[in-house]
Design a protein around this nucleic acid. Sequence first.
DNA 1: GTAATTGCCTAAACAGATTAGGAAAGCGCA
DNA 2: TGCGCTTTCCTAATCTGTTTAGGCAATTAC
Lengths: 190, 190
Amino acid sequence: MARAGLTTERLVKAGAEMADEIGFEQTTPSELARRFGVRTASLYSHVRNAHDLKTRIALLALEELADLVSAAVAGRAGKDALTAFANAYRDYAHKHPGRFAATRFPLSPEAAASSAGVRHARMSRAILRGYHLAEPHQTHAVRLLGSVFSGFVGLEGAGAFSHSSPDPRESWTEILDALDTLLRTWPTTS
Amino acid sequence: MARAGLTTERLVKAGAEMADEIGFEQTTPSELARRFGVRTASLYSHVRNAHDLKTRIALLALEELADLVSAAVAGRAGKDALTAFANAYRDYAHKHPGRFAATRFPLSPEAAASSAGVRHARMSRAILRGYHLAEPHQTHAVRLLGSVFSGFVGLEGAGAFSHSSPDPRESWTEILDALDTLLRTWPTTS
DNA sequence: GTAATTGCCTAAACAGATTAGGAAAGCGCA
DNA sequence: TGCGCTTTCCTAATCTGTTTAGGCAATTAC
């Protein structure tokens, strides 16, 4: 019988594509096996279990996202960098909804430590370099940016903006304007 | 054999408590049946299926949250109302993590229409009344507030702030200050 | 007290996750 | 080329969760 050529990497890659097609929740070992034309049990030599598969997809997505954001931000500063970061993030979520959902999969401390989360944190701080915020204000601002991006894209994906006008893209643009203004005049009165 | 006294309402209520204890994902018909000391199949006279159970828990949580936020905001205006809204929201997520997760369960259009989502939207707009923003800026600001609250609490719950100082509460306070400033000086230059 | 109703049961089918052990494909090496 | 070793995928089996169909017993209504 011809072999299917399973490897951990191919499974995770295919799992990520599957997530974009049918949703991260529905990305299960059995469905993945179906796509490779093998029995479910055959995956277990390459992936520890269902949770491990999802973790690996999450790590892949975090790396991809970090690569894209990093490329988008390179050579930019100030508001230019802010919008490049934000748009790269949002574009990724739109093009790869399943992978984006995967980036929200709760990681174990060990998995989180080996993830691209560190790169994400560093990039957020890099954005703020042009705004000259001292600690602890910089950390607060990093957290605000993360909250806005994560929250907006999450709500948009959940359809929270679907039943009201105007188009979310207009809100996105105006919100980025507002954030830029806010960062330039951050109230450091604590 | 003595009856367990199952009703849809009791099941949903218990399901919500279960979600807070073991997580919304783990809130399944079989586990719920276990807690009531009945067979899983017995639930199916009161709840259509697993998805229906989760939807009902989500609707319950949305109502509860709307009640709490509404009570917190009553009689307040401006920054006072803003922080009351925000804190009620965040407190609920802390006290009821499972229910809060349930509020993010994707609802069908019909379920969403019959949900407390409308109340949430109305309350967000009420908050902004004190800031005198004209449309479409008010809508953009509503979406920003929703994004920040949802994003911050989501990230906090996922442990995204656990491995860096300072305490998220400090960020929360400073972010609310910043939002207040931002809303009072919203850049209407579109 | 009996009839109708309702509530929870048993039984069964089915799908997904996971483990153990087997057979055969492909590789390294004489 | 052919031998054995390793790896890959398989079968078989178990367990858990979801869901439907049909039955008996507890409650309610008269």
